[in-house]
């Protein structure tokens, strides 16, 4: 694979919730190793698009998808594809932090354990995995003394960081984030954004956000969507200064949405 081949590529992607069409012919190429923000008014399909990339949309029985999505060059809608394998390489962070009702340690090790092949690894090895994942999200120092406490006892900010940390032991290539800061206060949002910049480079991050300022601060490229269609995709700086499409300009300047 060429070095700057897209990490995520969709081709004529259409999605229907029953009779309702939510995505129209979306063609998108997300570059690897950077943060790409999906912006647009409520109901424009940005979360739907995000949830196609790990096929978690299919939890709802009535979703129908046509077109193609490739992640790291692999067609994830190909007939023989195993969802568990697809999702192993594509981590997802949700709008509301959703740590499992298990100790912090077990939350971090959850993905590792369900995908482990071969015998159980030694405890020391597990400890190393936990520590490196928590360090990567800047959470290690706060929680290192209470790894056996329930993850649900953490603050929302810590929970959300934990939800990102638990994806890392699987060495995902892509991280999908669905408004990861919308349940957090401004201070917590700032620390999570700082953490995202730390992760940038090692992972391809696709983030849905409602918050214009956040998209501007915390992304390299922006994708603007409207009514299920992709309107504009370009470097964040360019889009916010000189949007090519008048609808993008209207949205960014707050004329609607």
């Amino acid at each position: 694979m060429a070095k700057d081949a897209p990490a995520i590529r969709t081709e004529r992607l259409n999605l229907y919730y029953g009779e309702f069409q939510a995505l129209f012919d979306v063609d998108l190429a997300v570059k690897p190793g950077i943060i790409t923000a999906l912006i647009g008014p409520s109901g424009c399909g940005k979360t739907t698009l995000l949830r196609c990339v790990n096929r978690i949309n299919e939890r709802l029985g009535y979703v129908r998808t046509t077109g193609r999505i490739e992640v790291m060059g692999e067609d994830i809608y190909a007939p023989g594809v195993e969802l568990a394998q697809v999702r192993k390489h594509i981590g997802m962070v949700f709008q509301r932090p959703n740590p499992l009702p298990l100790p912090i340690r077990d939350n971090i090790l959850f993905g590792h354990r369900i995908h482990r092949e071969g015998p159980r690894v030694r405890r020391a090895e597990e400890d190393r995995i936990v520590e490196s994942a928590l360090r990567e999200v800047l959470l290690w120092d706060t929680v290192k003394d209470r790894l056996d406490r329930k993850a649900t006892s953490l603050s929302l900010e810590e929970q959300q960081k934990l939800c990102i940390a638990r994806l890392l032991p699987l060495k995902p290539k892509v991280l999908l984030m669905d408004e990861p800061c919308s349940a957090l206060d401004p201070k917590a949002t700032q620390t999570v954004e700082e953490m995202l910049w730390e992760l940038r480079g090692a992972y391809t991050i696709l983030i849905v956000t409602h918050n214009m300022a956040q998209a501007r601060r915390a992304s390299d490229e922006c994708v603007f969507m409207l009514m299920g269609k992709l309107i504009e995709h370009g470097p964040t700086d360019d889009m916010f200064v000189t949007p090519r499409d008048s609808r993008t300009a209207d949205y960014i300047e707050g004329r609607y949405g």
């Binding site: 790990n54 978690i56 939890r59 969802l83 568990a84 394998q85 697809v86 999702r87 192993k88 981590g91 997802m92 949700f94 509301r96 959703n98 740590p99 499992l100 009702p101 298990l102 959850f110 993905g111 354990r113 369900i114 995908h115 939800c163 638990r166 994806l167 699987l170």
Partner: peptide, 21 residues
């Protein structure tokens, strides 16, 4: 259901979700 969704997004099978979560 968010617990199931979280586990499913990490690639857990249905039985793993039931047994571990």
């Amino acid at each position: 259901d968010t617990y199931r969704e979280a586990a499913e997004a990490m690639g857990a099978t249905r039985w793993q979700i039931v047994w571990k979560v």
